[in-house]
């Protein structure tokens, strides 16, 4: 089957004297490489400059709150079931009277933990969630960890802060996918 028309038929015909002298071919090759020498390099200096990875990049998890600031998660456990890496674990609890402004549903996750060492950032938890509670944000990565006790992210680090709400925008407004905000610099 022919996929492209760039394929070339090879022939093992005897080389002519000009080809046996190698020099024309050598000079041709040198001309090609020297053109690359002066070409603009496509390298992105990674930790200093970050590339925008698109609105569907799967980065740091976030447990969303709804418009009134109530946690959306109802601790149904579907994300944990869907997770191929078995990274999610949770403890469910019943919503008490007076907590209606905190939790949207009558049952909520008292503990919700993601083991970032196990997580493979596949995004299946996001797909499984019936309450639109868990998302993988496209603008933030899980930072590098050095200690084993740093790898389990609890609710304190997963639940969305009210002053730092996450909206997934498809526009190109977000130009970089930073890991740590301090290192952010304008990228192309």
């Amino acid at each position: 089957m022919q996929l492209t028309n760039r394929s070339k038929q090879v022939s093992n015909k005897e080389m002519t004297l000009a080809e046996k002298m190698y020099l024309p071919a050598v000079i041709g090759g040198l001309a090609i490489t020297i053109r690359h020498f002066f070409r603009k390099k496509p390298t992105i200096q990674y930790p200093e400059v970050k590339k925008y990875l698109g609105p569907i990049y799967r980065g740091h998890h976030v447990l969303k709150r709804d418009e009134q600031g109530r946690e959306r998660c109802t601790a149904c456990g579907l994300c944990a079931v869907a997770c191929p890496a078995e990274a999610i674990s949770m403890v469910a609890a019943e919503r008490k009277k007076g907590e209606e402004s905190l939790y949207r549903e009558e049952k909520y996750a008292a503990v919700y933990e993601i083991n970032m060492l196990r997580c493979i950032f596949c995004g299946l938890c996001e797909e499984a969630c019936p309450k639109q509670a868990v998302y993988l944000r496209h603008d933030r990565m899980v930072p590098v960890f050095q200690e084993r006790d740093e790898v389990i992210y609890g609710k304190d680090r997963l639940v969305e802060k009210m002053d730092d709400r996450y909206v997934r925008i498809a526009s190109s407004e977000v130009q970089a996918t930073p890991t740590e905000p301090s290192l952010t610099r304008a990228a192309t």
């Binding site: 089957m1 022919q2 028309n5 394929s7 070339k8 038929q9 022939s11 015909k13 002519t16 004297l17 000009a18 080809e19 002298m21």
Partner: peptide, 24 residues
């Protein structure tokens, strides 16, 4: 002399026929 020989040899050489691959 070498350049002349080289030019002559490449001019006299039979053209390399490149048969396009048949699509099956």
């Amino acid at each position: 002399v070498m350049i002349v020989l080289a030019v002559m040899s490449s001019a006299r050489a039979p053209k390399r026929t490149v048969v396009p691959q048949q699509t099956v």
